[in-house]
């Protein structure tokens, strides 16, 4: 009983910590400049850029992660445990280090060849997308694999014995059965991309209107000691974050009830 109380206390303690952080933020919100900062062209530009980049990178990450997650969920192959382990890569490497590695890659021969094709990532929108993609794709594989693991392989087996090819059984059976889970995973990946900072600023810099995403804007406002401005931007990020979290929980709950 004692341990149970301790565990509950720990859970409430963590929630209180986060609550305290949000409350301290509210102390800086509400000044005369609140609405002005909220609707300023710099803020709107950062929001638009963040939403666009996060959406593009999340879609890209989901598209790449889906077949990879399916393969990892359905097959055991030599080295599959190593592949599984490497998916943790963005979680164990600091985002700034990941960004630096991206920059270094574009200094190598293959990287220069890619740039020669017209792919310019340094100080560019594509750099934001690439940084966010590389930060989230491993997590996307993890999330999708967890969803696919819950779909019994028997459904695919039966579909194939009824004449569907491997891809047809995936499209007509696995995708519809995992749709809610995939959507929830996509939302979480999108939220992760939206909040990405370290790799993004390392690769794409902080050019206002061009590569200045919301997290970068917050960092720059703090650099100028503009706490009110930073708090407005944080609130916007919080709004998106809490919204997607609520949506995800709703989707997962419906999936569990279904």
């Amino acid at each position: 009983m004692k341990f149970r109380r301790l565990a509950l206390l720990s859970a409430f303690g963590i929630v209180s910590l986060y609550g305290l952080l949000v409350l301290s933020l509210l102390g800086f919100v509400g000044g005369a400049d609140f609405w002005g900062t909220l609707w300023s062209s710099d803020t709107l530009s950062a929001v638009r850029l963040s939403l666009l980049a996060a959406t593009a990178s999340a879609i890209l990450a989901m598209l790449v992660a889906l077949p990879a997650a399916w393969a990892l969920s359905r097959f055991r192959f030599p080295g599959s445990s190593w592949v599984d382990m490497f998916l943790e890569f963005p979680m164990i490497v600091s985002p700034a280090a990941l960004g630096a590695m991206i920059l270094m890659f574009f200094r190598t021969t293959p990287g220069e060849w890619v740039q020669g094709l017209g792919v310019d990532v340094v100080f560019a929108f594509s750099g934001i997308v690439l940084a966010q993609f590389l930060t989230t794709v491993g997590i996307a594989v993890r999330l999708i694999k967890a969803v696919l693991d819950e779909i019994p392989v028997r459904y695919e087996n039966v579909a194939r014995s009824l004449g569907a090819s491997s891809f047809q059984s995936f499209r007509s059976v696995v995708l519809p059965l995992s749709a809610r889970g995939l959507l929830a995973s996509g939302i979480l990946v999108w939220a992760k991309a939206l909040g990405e900072f370290g790799a993004t600023i390392t690769v794409a810099g902080s050019l206002p209107g061009k590569t200045e995403t919301l997290p970068i804007a917050i960092f720059l406002e703090l650099g100028k000691a503009n706490l009110e401005g930073a708090s407005v931007l944080i609130l916007i990020l919080l709004f998106f974050g809490v919204s997607v979290l609520a949506l995800t929980r709703l989707l997962v709950r419906r999936r569990n009830l279904a």
């Binding site: 028997r154 087996n157 039966v158 194939r160 014995s161 009824l162 004449g163 569907a164 090819s165 491997s166």
Partner: peptide
């Protein structure tokens, strides 16, 4: 492959 065998499997 399973789809090419003409055999239905009912688990």
């Amino acid at each position: 492959s399973p789809e090419g065998r003409g055999i239905a499997y009912v688990p």
